[in-house]
Design a protein around this nucleic acid. Structure first.
Length: 215
DNA sequence: AAAACGGGGGC
DNA sequence: GCCCCAGTTTT
């Protein structure tokens, strides 16, 4: 797909897709909230994260919180035991090794437990203004459906997107496509009939010409 | 009732 | 690369 067409699709989505509800740009909060959101529907997880921050607002406080108490607070997000352990360990590392400041580079972030490329890139792009593409399953699925890239895993998608997606969109693409994926371009039964960019979508075109068979 | 869902890490 | 992880939502 040509670059100017990708830009057009993004501009349409920006005008039609609802804004992402999580607004904080505090690196510590974004980092912890993103870890909590892993493998869960993120509607719930931001409420859960706020409850956690009410009781433990900083890395200094969180590093001394009992794992069971963290687990109790984040329970609705699922995987609460393993996440609680990781969250506490992250808080401890940030406080002791990084003097209370969340690392600002990909390499350092990836050393934290429970932090992979998606989580690290969320922090880099949202909190530190770096040109990073945070690829989660929404970004992966939608990029492939639209025909922007043709890849089989998130890392490939990240690399391929860096070649075809104009740099000015990198930082915002995750929030935009997450909300698009939630409301229209869902994993199953996407609402193509009301999709504002279906005319630019490979998946939709194939569905139309392929006699109703899904791709 | 069963399958889909969503990141990271350990092997 | 494969497989596991827990609870909610969709089919």
């Amino acid at each position: 797909m040509p670059v100017n067409e990708i830009s057009k699709v993004i501009e349409i989505l920006r005008k039609t897709v609802p804004p992402h509800p999580y607004k904080s740009r505090d690196p510590f909060r974004v980092l912890i909230a993103t870890v909590i959101s892993q493998r869960t529907k993120d509607e719930v997880t931001y409420e859960v994260a706020e409850k956690l921050f009410q009781k433990y607002p900083t890395a200094e406080k969180l590093k001394d919180a009992p794992v069971e108490e963290i687990a109790r607070l984040i329970y609705p997000a699922g995987f609460y035991r393993e996440k609680a352990k990781k969250i506490k360990e992250i808080a401890k590392l940030i406080w002791e090794k990084y003097k209370g400041k969340v690392p600002t580079t990909l390499d350092e972030l990836l050393k934290l437990p429970g932090v992979g490329r998606k989580t690290a890139n969320i922090v880099l792009s949202r909190c530190y203004g770096k040109d990073a593409i945070a690829v989660d399953t929404h970004v992966h699925r939608i990029s492939n459906r639209l025909g922007w890239v043709y890849t089989k895993n998130p890392l490939e998608t990240e690399n391929a997107l860096m070649k075809v997606l104009p740099r000015k969109y990198w930082r915002d693409i995750n929030e935009l496509l997450v909300m698009f994926g939630r409301t229209i371009c869902r994993p199953q039964a996407p609402k193509c009939d009301i999709c504002p960019v279906k005319q630019y979508c490979k998946y939709y075109q194939e569905k139309e010409s392929g006699g109703g068979r899904s791709a």
